[in-house]
Amino acid sequence: MTQLDFTGPLQVLGRMPASEVCVIARTLDPVGTDGALTVLPTHDINTAPDLDLICVPGGFGIASVAKSQISIEFIRRQALHARYVTSVCTGALILGAAGLLRGKKATTHWAYHDLLPLFGAEPVKARVVRDGNVFTGGGVTAGIDFALTILAEVAGPDLAKTVQLGLEYNPAPPFNSGHPDIADPVALEAANRRYAPALAETRAAFENWSDPRNSGTKWDRK
């Protein structure tokens, strides 16, 4: 997964009062990231408690997650009772594969926006999108905005503002290049080249997608 997709929201949501954070994976084996960090799950999908809030991070590994019936069914099952169903970056595509974005407005990383309609979702260009109890965050750094939005929803804006201040989250990037609508054409071309292989793999993983609640859907049972 993309390290900041996970650690950005965790840094914020870990300050939720009277709460417990669970890090859940298919197994208890360490989970690699696109950086030097390795994440140790606290639960596997068989021992995870019922969640009040489920958050699915993204990253180049989602193509394999999309093919895992066990993972998709776990997310769909948790969403039945979760108060909030959320994602960051390309984690939205996993919510989609679980049938949770149909008829919903949603966002994801800009390079993957055109995949959202595959799941019956309406793509929205925004860093955070809410539709009912479904919250989706845009790419990578948007996970911090997303988490502050959730924190304000659950624990109130005063606490969210205090956490933002404590994190000194006051973005002032050195370049005006954080979105394709404003990025330098050279930077945009380079970014598109970088994402092309992973985007092709992800598109292939989802191109024959159908709602997992319908019969005839084929998944790898792992």
Rank of each mutant, 00 (worst) to 15 (best):
A92S: 15
T90P: 02
K218Y: 11
N46K: 11
V31P: 10
L167Q: 02
G61R: 04
S215Y: 08
L53D: 03
F6H: 08
A66E: 07
I72H: 02
E122M: 13
T202P: 03
N208S: 02
A126T: 05
I94M: 14
G166K: 00
L118K: 07
F206R: 01
V23S: 06
K104D: 08
D114E: 15
V21T: 10
T202F: 10
P41S: 14
F206L: 08
A66H: 03
G14D: 08
C55H: 09
G216H: 10
L10S: 11
A147N: 05
A79R: 08
T42W: 01
G58A: 15
A191H: 01
T42H: 02
E207V: 10
T47L: 04
E201V: 14
R194N: 03
P173C: 11
Y112T: 04
P197E: 00
D5N: 12
T108S: 12
D131G: 02
L4T: 05
L101M: 11
R76D: 12
F74R: 09
A25Q: 05
L101Y: 11
A190R: 08
P30T: 03
E207R: 04
K105H: 08
V21N: 04
A63N: 05
L199V: 14
V88A: 02
K161M: 07
G156I: 12
L116P: 11
A106K: 01
I62M: 13
